[in-house]
Nucleic acid binder design. Sequence first.
DNA 1: AGGGCTTATTACCTTTTTATGACAAACTTC
DNA 2: GAAGTTTGTCATAAAAAGGTAATAAGCCCT
Lengths: 230, 230
Amino acid sequence: MSSLKILVVEDEDAIRGMLIMVLQQAGFFPTAAKDAEEAQNIIHDNPPDLILLDWMLPGISGVEWARRLKKEPIYSDLPIILLTARGEEEDKVRGLEIGADDYMTKPFSPKELVARIHAVLRRSGKILGQAQICLGDLILDIDQHRLIIGDRQLEVSPTEFRLMHFFMTHPDKVYTRTQLLDQVWGRSVYIEERTIDVHIRRLRKILEEYGRDDLVQTVRGFGYRFSMVD
Amino acid sequence: MSSLKILVVEDEDAIRGMLIMVLQQAGFFPTAAKDAEEAQNIIHDNPPDLILLDWMLPGISGVEWARRLKKEPIYSDLPIILLTARGEEEDKVRGLEIGADDYMTKPFSPKELVARIHAVLRRSGKILGQAQICLGDLILDIDQHRLIIGDRQLEVSPTEFRLMHFFMTHPDKVYTRTQLLDQVWGRSVYIEERTIDVHIRRLRKILEEYGRDDLVQTVRGFGYRFSMVD
DNA sequence: AGGGCTTATTACCTTTTTATGACAAACTTC
DNA sequence: GAAGTTTGTCATAAAAAGGTAATAAGCCCT
């Protein structure tokens, strides 16, 4: 699942801006509101997958608004993370009479925020990886961790599986070795670009037995492409 | 089984009230106590099927009381879910051998609470599912704690049984060691991940005699999978 | 055709991951 | 409370995977 929308409801410009920045960086699609009223409109027009809500808001307080939201059946499943200043309210928040799914005390690190968002989204089932990815007669089953062609199962190593996963979710497009390294191995790993060649080779060898080694195509001077079309 | 009784032990009125509300809504029959002493009486007069216990209590702390309870043979099977505030204690909960079956960090969503209660009840056998679970020629007899293959029946140890139970009710999907630990042993126990390997080994050894050790499959880099398919 | 560059292929070695047997503590059972 | 189970941990063996370098093969241009 991609394009997870997060609504930030926060009256202080600086904090709101910072939050939006952080969220974008983390791959979310943030929208923002200054108060409950504005937020209400956004929710109506373009319901987000999660709300980051300031405890104190001008007009209707964040808590109050959250409570109302949770009562409406349409929105009751919408996860809410409360943002509070450190202080006396902390105890009350813990009481969770509000129905918030989590809370954070300012100031917090971007890292922690993103981590909590992920946790809440996962808990509420918003992050559902597709169970299966099909492409022609290729099936990559994430849950079962299996790669199947037709009715036969292929034996692939962890890295081969990840590579295949990336290819199948990004078909028909050329990727440089560096891009593949970043996407499949992760930005923080440092290995030779040429190593990619070897892994491509290994993938092809496996696919070869099924006459499908033509799926992994070399684009001379650029990199590799995975495609059902020649 | 209907009319599952749940005892809430929590000193803060607001939270206690909220919990009771949530539990009723979810179809349980909650009773409540403000402290360990009160709880002790209730347990004696009208033993519940599960206890929701606050970590911090006036007088005897929740943890201390839980520990004592677990030592009494009569109550040792009574599942306990600990409620803790987020903070330093969190780590301790996992580490310390309290004997709780699960724990939750406030604040939590009602949904999650109910889900965990169900999970714990199921694990501890309070919720009767099917009496038998069949998969191919495998039959797992819940009541008798027996595994039947074809026409022969064999005894398995408690842990092996639970592991087998989990596998047979969740076939074809890969689980990491951590997931298995959480699901089969419970979230609050702390044992080495590698211990899973040993239990897998033991399961396989049993199945081996019937030529069925291929049911438990290793998925390198991820974990294990139980499947009738290769 | 040949030089220069890019990719393919293979072999090798290191690291990582899993399997297995043994042991001791904890727990049951009689 | 003694004998037998059960279960978690460790040490070690075994297996698989992953990265690199060396060499072969291929492509493109003049």
